[in-house]
Amino acid sequence: MRNLSDKSLKQLNSKKGLKYFLLQDGMTSEKAVRIMNYENKLKKLQGELIKLQQWVEANNEKVVIIFEGRDAAGKGGAIRRVTEHLNPREFKVVALPKPTDEEQGEWYFQRYINNLPREGKIVFFDRSWYNRAVVEPVNGFCTDEEYNIFMNQVNDFERMIIESGIRVIKFYFSISKSEQIKRFEDIKTSPLKKWKFSKVDQQAIRLWDSYTEYKKRMFAKTDTEISPWIIIKANRKSAARLEAIQKILELVPYKTEV
């Protein structure tokens, strides 16, 4: 407590600060201040996201925001914070399941094209067409030929949709192996989260090096000038969420009319 500033002490003496101490076991003064500072920053950024969404709608813009990363990297949590206060009629979150037999007979990108935004809308992809760049080849869900075709086509595909007027932002949430192990253990022991632990997750640690190799190939091929990757260091979930929102606000020029 003695190392805290007067501002931090005032925060702790507020109703919110006292609530943390009453409701959470093991709460320290430093941790409470850190959480309150995070929530204050998040609230401010979320207010800007509302302005951004209104700009997108008013100007008939189309925005795609891709969230990629290892299992348990925090993609879903980040998307929830980004969309928490947005108008649900003007955006959608796309997390496509395993393709159907019919979809498997289509061009790989087809089902993603079907989910691209219309004018005035934002689409968030919780994993995207980049499944074929990493997850599928690592786990044997596609052939070498299918992987190679994808890698030969993906840059042209992105160039076409960007030139058609869709703004594309690509995030990769990066975590350490030790952090992934820790998060998996938290998920498996939580009665509310253990449903999230899939067969693919079970193999993730064993296949860590293979994921790393395909991730490197993906960056080398698809980190282009027209569609670059933004790497978010995600060992700290709160910092990763704030950074992702800040990048969105920087990359979409919603303040041009102010």
Rank of each mutant, 00 (worst) to 15 (best):
I226C: 13
I50R: 01
E185T: 01
Y172I: 06
E61R: 13
L251E: 03
R70Q: 12
K16I: 14
D144W: 11
E136T: 03
E213M: 12
S164C: 04
T189P: 14
H85S: 02
F173A: 10
K233E: 13
G77L: 09
I232P: 01
K194V: 11
S8I: 00
E158V: 01
K62T: 15
S128M: 05
V138H: 14
P137D: 12
S8C: 12
V93H: 07
E90C: 05
R206L: 13
R89A: 12
S5Y: 09
V82H: 00
W129K: 01
A32D: 06
P228W: 02
V33Q: 02
E213Q: 12
E84P: 02
I175F: 15
E225P: 06
V168G: 11
E39L: 05
V123N: 15
A234K: 03
R70S: 09
L251P: 00
A239K: 11
Q104T: 05
P99L: 12
I248V: 11
V93S: 05
R183A: 06
I162A: 09
Q110L: 15
A73S: 10
K237I: 01
K19E: 15
D101F: 05
E103K: 11
N139E: 10
V138N: 08
D156T: 14
I35W: 03
S198V: 00
F124S: 11
L18M: 08
T28R: 07
T212R: 15
A73R: 04
K196V: 02
F173D: 02
I162G: 09
A95T: 12
R2L: 14
K19M: 13
V252H: 08
R127A: 04
G47Q: 08
S29W: 11
N155H: 01
M36W: 04
Q24Y: 13
I169G: 13
